[in-house]
């Protein structure tokens, strides 16, 4: 696998109010160049933290973060900033990620200027080109963020992420703020940009149908851990981890008869129930798992290969268990 970005043994812990909150717990994760990977899981599972740590916007408490063969955690602040041109983030709320006092032209030109690729004056042409790439008029440069609609802001966020010709784009819930028709348009835009610019995507999402359409690989997160990882089609058709199964079961079906069946089948402990009570030991899913065994509460299963190219962290798949 031609690995572009990777986390190895990464933990993120926040101290707040005397308690230690675990954002990521010894996570190993890798993205291959030119693939579209997705990270899914319920809110609070650590998927946003994983995305931010991958770009070192969140400093890990332990572990290493590699990008293009280089250990980012060993770099100085200035050296890391120079690498940032190649690895970009799209935030969950595009409006909040735009400086309300800067025009769109300034916001888009900023990455080019701080990386010494253009001056404020000469950046105009590339800003116009980037706006055209996402289907916006060059004349919109002079406007402020609040003058745009939600869909336009999402396009601006995309333009900003790709204007410096990055290799990796981490997109945090890029579609959740958009209505269905816009989602289709933006997805198409993501695909076209990937082809023309050779991008690698990490999509952070809770929208399983969308992930199924765009991502070639998917990682399922729970309680700061990756509990399952593999090719999207295989993971979705034959989930190895009970939590993945629960997530898939919770997806509504657009056929009333099938949806009634699904709801009848839905277990009494739905995946939607938050699992914030981080456990020091044992499987993070043990309280909600229909297959829980005695050992699940005591020993956390390590992620291991369950099929070629697929891993899961569940005792059900361990021959030695």
């Amino acid at each position: 696998m031609n690995e572009l970005a990777a986390l190895s043994g990464v933990s993120v812990r926040y101290a707040s109010g005397g308690r230690v909150h675990v954002g990521l717990d010894r996570v190993d994760y890798a993205v291959a160049a030119h693939e579209t990977a997705a990270v899914i899981g319920e809110s609070g599972c650590g998927k946003t933290t994983l995305g931010r740590t991958l770009l070192l916007l969140q400093t890990p408490s332990e572990g290493r973060v590699h990008f293009a063969g280089e250990d980012l955690t060993a770099l100085s602040g200035a050296a890391l900033r120079r690498r940032r041109r190649l690895m970009q983030m799209m935030f969950q709320d595009p409006y909040a990620s735009l400086n309300p006092r800067m025009t769109i032209g300034e916001t888009l030109a900023e990455p080019l200027v701080v990386h010494g690729m253009e001056t404020w004056r000469s950046a105009q042409a590339r800003v116009a080109e980037a706006l055209a790439m996402v289907g916006l008029a060059a004349a919109m440069q002079a406007r402020l963020p609040h003058e745009f609609s939600g869909g336009q802001r999402q396009r601006i966020a995309i333009a900003r992420a790709v204007i410096g010709r990055p290799r990796l784009v981490v997109a945090d819930e890029p579609l959740s703020a958009l209505d269905i028709t816009l989602q289709g348009q933006i997805l198409g835009l993501f695909r076209r940009l990937q082809e023309s610019l050779g991008l690698t995507y990490v999509f952070i999402s809770h929208d399983l149908p969308v992930v199924g359409r765009i991502a070639s690989r998917v990682a399922v997160m729970l309680g700061g851990c990756i509990v399952e990882e593999g090719p999207t089609q295989e993971v979705f058709s034959r989930p190895a981890h009970p939590y993945t199964q629960a997530l898939l079961d919770a997806v509504p079906i657009a056929d009333p008869a099938a949806e009634r069946l699904r709801q009848a089948r839905e277990p009494s402990s739905p995946a939607g129930r938050p699992a914030r009570e981080a456990r020091a030991q044992g499987c993070p899913f043990v309280q909600r798992c229909p297959h829980a065994m005695a050992m699940c509460a005591d020993i956390r299963p390590e992620r291991a290969e369950v099929a070629p190219g697929r891993t899961a962290a569940c005792w059900l798949h361990r021959a030695d268990a």
């Binding site: 602040g77 200035a78 935030f91 969950q92 909040a96 990386h115």
Partner: peptide
């Protein structure tokens, strides 16, 4: 803690520029 400051850092804006161009006007 706001996204637009984090976003500016994410595109590679250094601390001096961040203070002058993003925080000061705010």
């Amino acid at each position: 803690a706001q996204d637009f400051i984090l976003a500016a850092q994410a595109v590679g804006v250094g601390p001096v520029r961040l203070l002058r161009r993003h925080l000061l006007p705010a």
